[in-house]
């Protein structure tokens, strides 16, 4: 049986762990607020840009711009967006599992697959797995800037236009609410056409200047903005996941402390009872 001192020590250890998880929860809540603001501000622009480009992609000749080119998908790139840090529940594991599933599925179709690892967890995971990592970027979520998205975007555009990759998919956590993330798989390149909602009429745009000049300016921006949005989504989702995970850890610690305290009292009582019995027994022996 554990001695009283052992139990006391255990209780105080759980208590200090609880203090840490509580603090982490509060830090995550504060960061979540900022991250949530950022993603909510960026979404309207990103969605609309996506839509406008989708319209254009459905109209123009695809060979007009290298970023619209539809090739036979032989070399597939999967962009796995995880966090740099852990202690956020199943946040990273979900991404890595989904990304691995995608990689396996593509490999079955006899495709060459490559990983673009974003976030420290993706990098550490794929470094020791059989899928080749073609590009990695990590340790930037704590000071996330638009330049981070641009750097990744430039590399992805290079890989695509130099035919190193024919299709590029994103796997990331979309921010839904503080307690919910949506595991999302999206095609980034080539850009998917979106059918405009105009009924049966045939759509013909008037362009100023020419379509290829507009696309030249819009397409790289589109990739920048979409990646920026995805990084912001993932960042907000990560803070939400961490907040929930730490809240649960704090609750679990409370429960554990309650149980241990109960146990402690029981042991204490048992010890006292035993001592009394011993004393009474001793006294009786003397009386005889």
């Amino acid at each position: 049986m554990a001695t009283l001192r052992d139990i006391r020590r255990k209780i105080s250890s759980v208590k200090s762990t609880q203090q840490i998880t509580k603090a982490m929860k509060m830090v995550a809540a504060a960061k979540l607020r900022r991250a949530q603001e950022n993603i909510l501000k960026t979404r309207p622009y990103a969605y609309r840009l996506n839509q406008v480009l989708g319209h254009v992609a459905g109209l123009v000749d695809r060979s007009i711009h290298p970023l619209l080119e539809e090739r036979e998908a032989k070399r597939i790139g999967i962009v796995a967006v995880t966090a740099d840090r852990g202690l956020c529940g199943a946040f990273n594991q979900n991404i890595l599992r989904k990304a691995t599933e995608e990689l396996e599925a593509q490999t079955k179709d006899v495709k060459d697959v490559f990983v673009i690892a974003i976030g420290r967890h993706a990098r550490d995971y794929f470094r020791i797995r059989p899928y080749p990592v073609i590009y990695e970027s990590y340790d930037f979520f704590s000071h996330l800037e638009f330049a981070n998205a641009v750097r990744i975007s430039e590399e992805i555009i290079r890989l695509f236009t130099q035919h190193e990759l024919d299709h590029i998919h994103l796997v990331y956590n979309e921010f839904k609410s503080a307690i919910q993330q949506n595991l999302t798989v999206e095609q980034l390149l080539p850009i998917q056409p979106v059918k405009p909602d105009i009924g049966r009429r045939k759509l013909e745009y008037l362009y100023e200047p020419s379509p290829d000049q507009i696309l030249d300016a819009l397409l790289p921006k589109q990739i920048d903005i979409q990646l920026w949005r995805v990084l912001l989504e993932s960042n907000a989702a990560e803070q939400g996941a961490r907040m929930t995970a730490m809240e649960m850890a704090t609750d679990n610690a409370s429960e554990m402390i309650d149980k241990l305290t109960l146990y402690y009292n029981r042991v204490r009582q048992a010890t006292i009872t035993k001592e009394i019995t011993e004393i009474v027994g001793g006294a009786e022996a003397l009386n005889k």
């Binding site: 254009v56 745009y205 008037l206 362009y207």
Partner: peptide
Amino acid sequence: GSFGVLKNHIPFLTA
């Protein structure tokens, strides 16, 4: 050049 838009403008994409 500057352009104006009223209702039922034709589809238009410009920088």
